[in-house]
Design a protein around this nucleic acid. Structure first.
Lengths: 336, 336
DNA sequence: AAAGAAATTGCCATCGATGGCAAAAAAGGA
DNA sequence: TCCTTTTTTGCCATCGATGGCAATTTCTTT
């Protein structure tokens, strides 16, 4: 592979001059610039990013970490948000990369994406869905490596995050269903030890209490459409039917739909369904799915902005936070 | 950030010795090893991967490139395959990273993932779904940068790929529907200029011809569940109903389902639906979705194996190919 | 205890690029 | 034309790690 010295030799200049041309330094005469550019073109020379980054102590790369479990959340919030993160990162001149990394694995094996971040391959990271206690965050704070959580980290006052007001989302969802006249409401949620879900369930329960209702149950570990399907079948076959199912994640709501259809029931007449995420499919399902919007684009933009600031100023651990208000989109699936 | 020299100084040895300890070189006395390890522990030293990779000319990193458009294929084949690629890569000691990169952008802007690959940030790449003509592949071949396509590249005899026999998949799907007694079949496909889709449609048409049938139509650009929904509504409202819809992508098949439900029709009695991918949801939908399996896990393993071989041996451009036979999973959605 | 073999450690150059500064070349002024 | 100023270019050191080899230390052996 041709390097800067080769180019320099072929162009009859010093490597330093080639470097200047590459970096658009104006202290280069037009004549040499042309010559160098031509050699670059002829040889197909590409600057070595490893060397550049080593020297400059900057990679211009940001990681987005998804946990292995998350990836099972196919087609939901993460995918959409990553799209937006990507765009936002580009706008600020960063390169965005997605990698898997599991919480609770600080001294992770070298294959884990987290290893790349801690060992200099990136300038910072966006971390999705941290667990109740996420050792990685403690580690990053200690090392002063920039990061932003998408979700909530209640354990470190210094960590920055961008989050939906999940308490409000849970509250709002329950109250909407109650408003519509539903009262035997079941709430399907992801893993219990994620703060996001903890908040949602608190909000949900508070709303139920406020109206003097008890939820039929809150079901955890509903982390995919097929789990949602299986759980709903189980619920319907138990005989003790709810009149509404509130489910965290629109894709999972589709699993709920199928179970309800399979048992010959109708939405929303027999059972209402309310989702969270408001993905495009919510509008293109039958019946159209009521859902709570998380504003993934706004979240992504804020996340990158915060990360960029940390990287630029070196001020890590300022505990900058942005909380979004959930927005309810009422469609057919909850209209009695 | 603490570096190898700091550790060396604190441990009272030379950097070279620290390096030996890090790399588990056995030519180090037990006493110094202990001392060095202790200093590493105390200081929290982490080896700088940029420096390591620059020196060794190896990063141990593989990219998986998804095009921006692909990401709209939420929750489908790509997501699952990436999971498997990740695992397979780990097994062979690589770190796997996902990035967006668009075909036809060789001299891409610096933010594009492709730039990272061509400029030394990775050892090789898995490229999804190349277009009919993908300049990137030409470029990588010329530069002798290892890559494997998941899909098919009919333009370069030297490029390696792992692929489903898409012709056969199209053929098999059509023939299954015909066997079941359907004859007015519509085929919904992604972008026309992807070789994958070209092959599927050829297979489909050949099967129809073989049985003396004409497809009602082949519809392209159906790249997401919502597009599938919209197209199906359009089809149903046109009055000229098909009796079966064959759709590339199970997630998109869900869009078809919703449109059919919305128009008050039943699956498979009024209209049959057949998907491709065989994602978990196929089994957990109502009715369960017949689908054609692409064997994402096997594909991922083969892809990584091929890539690893290229990297290890330096033999790039051998045109190694692995083609998988599609497997039809018959479920309720196509049983008359 | 001396000599030779084996184990351990350190020095230097290198991977590819660039910041800082000095040297060289070109331009401007009298 | 000579001197000063400005522009252009090059040298050297450095980012952090490691391969190759030489130097040193330790261990064997007689």
């Amino acid at each position: 592979m041709v390097n800067i010295k080769d180019v320099a030799r072929l162009a009859g200049v010093s490597p330093r001059t080639v470097s200047r041309v590459i970096n658009r330094d104006k202290n280069v005469s037009e004549r040499t610039r042309k010559r160098v550019l031509q050699v670059i073109d002829e040889t197909g020379y590409r600057v070595n990013l490893l060397a550049q980054s080593l020297r400059s102590k900057k990679t211009g790369i940001l990681f987005a970490f998804v946990s292995e479990k998350d990836n099972a959340f196919l087609g939901e919030f993460h995918n959409v948000t990553i799209q937006h993160l990507n765009e936002a990162a580009k706008k600020l001149g960063y390169k965005m990369i997605v990698s898997q990394s599991n919480a609770d694995r600080v001294q992770a094996d070298e294959q884990d994406g987290f290893y790349l971040l801690t060992n200099g391959y990136a300038d910072g990271a966006v971390i999705f869905d941290t667990k109740d206690v996420d050792e990685r965050l403690t580690y990053l704070l200690e090392k002063r490596i920039p990061f932003v959580v998408i979700g909530k980290d209640k354990h470190h006052p210094e960590s920055s995050y961008v989050n939906l007001d999940n308490y409000k989302a849970g509250f709002m969802g329950a109250e909407h269903l109650i408003d519509q006249g539903y009262s035997r409401i079941r709430f399907l949620l992801g893993s219990e030890n994620y703060t996001v879900n903890e908040d949602r369930s608190r909000g949900f329960l508070d709303a139920m209490n406020k109206h003097g209702l008890k939820p039929v149950a809150i079901d955890y570990e509903i982390i995919s459409p097929d789990r949602a399907y299986a759980k709903t079948i189980e619920i319907l076959d138990s005989g003790d039917w709810p009149d509404a199912i509130f489910v965290s994640g629109d894709m999972r709501a589709m699993g709920v739909y199928h179970a309800i259809y399979e048992r010959g029931l109708r939405i929303p007449d027999d059972i209402a369904v309310l989702g969270i995420d408001d993905i495009p499919m919510a509008e293109f399902s039958y019946p159209t799915l009521s859902s709570i919007n998380q504003f993934p684009e706004k979240m992504a933009i804020e996340a990158i902005r915060i990360l960029d600031r940390q990287i630029e100023t070196g001020e890590v651990g300022q505990g900058e936070r942005v909380i979004f208000d959930p927005e309810l989109k009422v469609r057919q699936s909850t209209r009695k």
